[in-house]
Design a binder for these strands. Structure first.
Lengths: 137, 137
DNA sequence: ATCAAATCCGACTAAAATACTCGGGATAAA
DNA sequence: TTTATCCCGAGTATTTTAGTCGGATTTGAT
């Protein structure tokens, strides 16, 4: 029941970008250094975040990454879902999962996982990158 | 961010024991059949639950497993913690984790994980095996 | 006493996921 | 033209997951 380094590193990197928001592109190298994360590995995560539209990149010297929206308008849930996939304790109650389990009626555990899914979502969907920044400043 | 089969199978098996509560020992084989779980694998999980004091076993013919407490007094959280370990999205905010991270003050993400940990616990610690039974009967 | 139904236990293993590393190509500012 | 940067795909070591396997032990029933 843990989030992997993908989600953890990703949220931390997005936090750095939020701190730097409005000051131009922040290079991967700096993010990696500040957060103590492998540069090459973080690169993969940033690629995913870029494809998902959460950040944009500027190539070439003096390049780097920039949040694609204001920190107020990006939630921790947005970031985690890109890097970790759907936020659910079990696949059979994922909102991305079209087909409901046919044994849902006889299932003693379904409601547990639904509640858990909803309560996790409630947390991460209501914390923005701006909230993270405000918390330490 | 998923629970593994240990947690899922374990909760389901405990649900079967709750349904059977008061009617003597229920053999592993029957639990495994009803829930479609590998018998040998479930055996390992029941061993852990027994060591944790959640179930007791009766050996020999006509033996099986019995809940060690009333279904009202066993929560889903009890079961999950035995089989999955501490319920936390990241180790550094686990309540089992004595030493707090020295960078906690400067950490933008700590509060997120704490909230998540608490909201997950709130769900599973407030659903008993009896609730599971009542839900399908 | 014997048999059969059970739990108990430790060792083993295949497959998947995780957490990276590596090398080279493309782009653009100075 | 050099250098800083992003971009991309492939490879890999380690850990976790999800089991399997074989046999020992216990005990109720015949």
């Amino acid at each position: 029941m843990k989030i992997s380094t993908k989600g953890r590193y990703g949220v931390r990197a997005m936090g750095e970008l939020a701190l730097y928001y409005g000051q131009g592109p922040l290079p991967l190298k700096e993010i990696a250094e500040k957060q103590g994360i492998s540069e090459h590995y973080l690169e993969q995560l940033m690629g995913a975040l870029r494809k998902a539209g959460l950040v944009k990149s500027v190539r070439g010297a003096q390049g780097g990454y920039i949040l694609n929206r204001s920190p107020k308008n990006i939630t921790v849930g947005d970031v985690i879902r890109v890097l970790e996939g759907p936020l659910t304790p079990v696949d059979c109650v994922s909102k991305d999962n079209a087909e409901a389990c046919e044994k849902a009626g006889a299932c003693m555990t379904r409601k547990i996982w639904e509640k858990m899914r909803d309560s996790m979502a409630e947390v991460v969907d209501n914390i923005t990158l701006q909230d993270m920044v405000d918390d330490i400043t």
